[in-house]
Design a protein around this nucleic acid. Structure first.
Length: 120
RNA sequence: GGAGCAAAUCGGCUUAUCGCUUUUUAAAGAGGAAAGUCCGGGCAGCACAGAGCAUCACACUUCCUAACGGGAAGGACCUGAAUAAUCAGGUACAGAUAGUGCCACAGAAAAUAGACUUCCAGUAAUUUAUUAUUGGUAAAGGUGAAAAGGUGGGGUAAGAGCUCACCGCUUUUUUGGCGACAAAAAUGGCAAGGUAAACCUUGUGAGCUGAAAGACCAAGUAAAUCGAGAAUUGAGGGUGGCUCGCCUAAUCUCGAAGGGUGGGUCGUUAGAUCCUAAUUGCGAAAUUAGGGCAAGAUAAAUGAUAGGCAGUUGAUUUGUUCUUCAGAUCAAUGUACAGAAUCCGGCUUAUGAUUUGCUCUUUUU
């Protein structure tokens, strides 16, 4: 089982991010907002991910870093839920954390997996 | 026992599973503040004939430093410990006889002081202790943060540094100190409030912009760029903000060379470097010798989960005469503040634990 999470799986180009935010579909699932959009990419890249924790809700960098790490860890362990469903095209996904308090890891895992099911 | 202040040290260790970044493929991988971005410097680009004005910063002395608005040592003043000595804390600590402004309430008067009441003397009038008038004087006038040296004696019609003693102050000299300044002596009768964290004056210093600086490579071709030539226009552009001064332009043709672009590499471990020791110095620091090389991400790595240990807190129990202290068991917690973004030196702020010193408070003996 491959749990790695290299740099190619991250969404880093500004053009792609602009397209995702303007054309992507939006799902609200507490405490997350998920945006996704289908594009063509090489087969080695099943999906591209963007994680965002807004500065408005968390002033300190320590809290933002902790939430980003938790979300990245959950996605890394559950890669197949994003990659297995589509074969010709791949997904651009943005996960926004829109809640004012920090939730424990197990609650985050449970609710994020439900949100990812809604995409399918 | 508790609280506060100051100084010093530390800012956890480890196992399993799955991962991230860098590269030499085997290693390394957040802090004392990485924070605030408040000062100073390195570095880089642009500018740089010069002069004046404006602007900004700083303001006791000597020293340290690459530099500073930082630090060390010292001086003066203020506050507290009853006073002195001494100790602790604090000070935007140049100038209020260059000028302008402001000073509520109270008070007779608040800044060119002498108008008013009072005091004293003379003259006149009469209600014979009052009024009017002339002169003397600034002592008294309940206030106020502040009233034109203070206290006491003499002196006088009443008074006044008018005079004397002590204290304070001005000026001068001598001595000590590198200096801020201190001490002593003489001298002048004593020019006389606060506010410059009000404008301002004096002295000293400052070119501007910041790593999104900047250099190179790849891809690639427009308005902008550079060079040469031509004619015309007119005072445009640059020079830190203004003025002077200085330099230069715009249009067309030809030639050269390329722009955008979250593409990449460098800048971005080798330094005002870190550790240890010795020497010099009261100290901040400096010098010498030996050893070490220590994160470089870029929508932003340095982790997540599950345990264990150390530590902390509480309860029970054992040893010891109670407290204290030491051990065992159980439970809770697994820490606080907080995440590099060009790099250093400081300052400020946030904060957990331990140790030492001082102060306050409470309980017991």
């Amino acid at each position: 089982m491959d749990h790695s999470f290299p740099k190619e799986l991250r969404l880093t180009h500004k053009r792609d991010i602009d397209i995702l935010f303007s054309k992507g579909k939006r799902i609200k699932s507490h405490p997350f907002i998920v945006l996704y959009h289908q594009t063509e990419m090489p087969k080695s890249v099943p999906f591209k991910l963007l994680i965002s924790v807004p500065k408005k809700n968390f002033k300190r960098a320590v809290d933002r870093n902790y939430l980003k790490r938790c979300i990245r860890e959950i996605v890394r362990k559950n890669k197949e839920s994003l990659s297995s469903n589509n074969k010709g095209t791949s997904l651009c996904v943005a996960i926004l954390y829109s809640f004012r308090t920090i939730l424990p890891f197990k609650e985050l895992e449970h609710s994020l997996l439900e949100a990812l099911k809604k995409i399918q």
